[in-house]
Amino acid sequence: MLEATQPGSGTPQPPQRTAVPPPLPRDQSFLTSITFLKVLLWLILLGLFAELEFGLAYFVLSLFYWMYVGMRGPGEKKEGEKSAYSVFNPGCEAIEGTLTAEQLERELQLRPLQGR
């Protein structure tokens, strides 16, 4: 392996490394412009279908499409991720922040404060 030496110096120096710049973050403006164009296209089509008297059907079908696209398949679930429905979790374990019947009963019972 060759070693770099400084001029006028007899001692070998290790080779200098050049700094590698960190990867650039994803450009959010591109995603926003695509989303804006999609919304604009949807509004134009809604106006067109409303003019043809099919606006309500277009809107309802759009809602069904958005619900379908927004759903995740079972293969997209992360390892260890709990379901929002406790019956699908091991041991019917509820996720944090779920209001249980027992908690509701405790909170609705009007009991005097202890020590009064």
Rank of each mutant, 00 (worst) to 15 (best):
M1A: 13
M1N: 07
L2Y: 07
L2E: 13
E3S: 13
E3V: 12
A4S: 13
T5Y: 14
T5V: 14
P7F: 11
G8H: 08
G8W: 08
S9L: 08
S9K: 09
G10D: 08
G10F: 04
G10H: 02
P12H: 03
P12E: 05
Q13S: 11
Q13C: 11
P14V: 13
Q16S: 13
R17S: 15
T18W: 04
A19C: 03
P21K: 08
P21R: 11
P23V: 14
P23H: 07
L24C: 07
L24I: 10
L24M: 12
P25I: 07
R26S: 12
Q28K: 04
Q28E: 09
S29T: 13
F30V: 15
F30C: 05
F30N: 07
F30M: 08
T32H: 06
T32L: 14
T32E: 15
T32G: 03
I34T: 14
L37I: 07
L37Y: 06
K38D: 10
K38G: 08
K38Q: 14
L40H: 02
L40V: 03
W42C: 04
W42D: 04
W42N: 03
L43S: 09
L43T: 10
L43M: 13
I44K: 00
I44P: 00
I44N: 04
L45V: 03
G47S: 13
G47P: 04
L48M: 10
F49E: 10
A50S: 15
E51I: 05
E51W: 12
E51F: 14
E53D: 15
F54N: 08
F54M: 13
G55W: 04
G55M: 06
G55D: 04
G55Q: 05
L56I: 15
L56K: 11
L56Q: 12
L56N: 11
Y58H: 03
F59A: 14
F59N: 06
L61C: 09
S62F: 03
S62K: 01
F64H: 04
F64M: 11
W66L: 11
W66A: 12
M67H: 01
M67L: 12
V69Q: 02
V69P: 00
G70I: 05
G70L: 05
G70P: 01
M71E: 06
M71P: 00
R72M: 07
G73P: 00
P74G: 12
G75T: 05
G75L: 05
G75Q: 06
G75W: 08
K78Q: 09
K78A: 15
G80C: 01
E81A: 09
E81H: 00
K82H: 02
K82A: 03
S86A: 12
S86G: 01
S86Y: 09
V87I: 06
V87C: 02
V87M: 02
N89Y: 01
N89P: 00
G91D: 09
E93Y: 00
I95N: 05
I95P: 00
I95H: 00
E96W: 09
T98S: 08
T100V: 02
T100Q: 01
A101T: 03
E102C: 02
Q103C: 00
L104A: 12
L104K: 07
E105S: 10
R106I: 07
R106P: 00
E107R: 06
L108D: 03
L108R: 10
Q109A: 15
P112I: 14
P112H: 15
P112Y: 14
L113K: 15
G115A: 13
G115L: 14
R116W: 15
